[in-house]
């Protein structure tokens, strides 16, 4: 399976993990440099949290990880992002295939309002013209993994917009999972949700860890501490591009950070 591969299959074996590693990543909007020399490895079957004050480039970086950054007019990047030994920006890789391997969940839940819950889950295979042998099973498996199955199993034919915000977000997670991505990116997935829904999604993340590599952006330090194995602290000094100040295991970042700015940030002194 390569990133240029035309023939599409849904792999169901989750045994083998997938490591996503970014090296020397720079990002521009127009001529404005917003990220400089980011190096980060998201190990297979771990959760990596990106934290940092607003505007430091976390979203930009996470969007670079699945080639959605380039959808913004004038957006540019440099550096490499390697998945399964292949550069996702390599000359033979195709953005659509990359995005299928590296799914993304957004801050605001965005189910397709005209589709039913089941259709939403199956939207990915349909958009990519992937033949699904057993759609019902795919819907059930994906919704179960996203922790939503029990709540919606009796109303799969209701519109996706009829769910609560937290349920919609889990529907979006299920929709991403239905194309069996190797990596799931989440950009502040809980910031529009209430504490209960947030807790529910954190549990979901905990359960998904065994299946998939997860990168999550969050402003909630407790959340980062609860769900992440690895934490990277981004910071953009005034008029400077964003950089990673420090990264390491969750315990190290929260209890024993090397850089005073890191410990100030994670303990709420600024930001």
């Amino acid at each position: 399976m390569t990133l240029a591969d035309a023939t599409v299959t849904l792999s169901t074996d989750a045994a083998e993990g997938h490591t996503l590693s970014a090296s020397g990543v720079h990002a521009w909007f127009g001529s404005h440099l917003v990220l400089e020399d980011i190096n980060l490895v998201a190990e297979a079957n771990t959760v990596t949290a990106l934290i940092g004050p607003s505007g430091c480039g976390k979203s930009t970086f996470i969007r670079i990880l699945n080639r959605t950054h380039e959808l913004v007019p004038g957006a540019q990047m440099a550096g490499e992002v390697i998945l399964n030994d292949e550069d996702i920006y390599g000359p033979s890789s195709r953005p659509t295939v990359v995005r299928r391997h590296i799914g993304m969940v957004f801050q605001k839940p965005n189910p397709f309002p005209a589709m039913t819950i089941a259709q939403n889950v199956l939207a990915g295979p349909k958009l990519n013209k992937i033949k699904v042998t057993d759609p019902d099973e795919l819907v059930e498996v994906s919704l179960t993994r996203a922790g939503l199955w029990r709540e919606v199993k009796d109303r799969l034919d209701k519109p996706g917009g009829s769910l609560s915000g937290g349920q919609q977000q889990r529907l979006c997670i299920a929709r991403s999972l239905a194309v069996h991505p190797d990596v799931l990116l989440m950009d502040e997935p809980c910031s529009a949700l209430d504490p209960t829904s947030t807790r529910r999604i954190e549990e979901t993340i905990g359960e998904l860890r065994d299946l998939i590599t997860i990168v999550i952006v969050t402003h909630n330090m407790q959340q980062a501490e609860r769900v992440a194995d690895h934490v990277a602290f981004f910071l953009a000094e005034e008029n400077e591009p964003g950089r990673i100040v420090e990264q390491g295991s969750t315990a190290k970042i929260f209890e024993d950070a090397d850089d005073p700015r890191t410990s100030d940030y994670v303990h709420g002194v600024f930001g």
Partner: peptide
């Protein structure tokens, strides 16, 4: 066009034409 839906479709691996057709 609702940006959220457009981005969601792209993030699922949709081509530009699929995004146009579905959103």
């Amino acid at each position: 066009s609702p940006q959220g839906e457009v981005e969601a479709a792209y993030a699922l691996g949709a081509t530009r034409w699929s995004v146009i057709k579905t959103v």
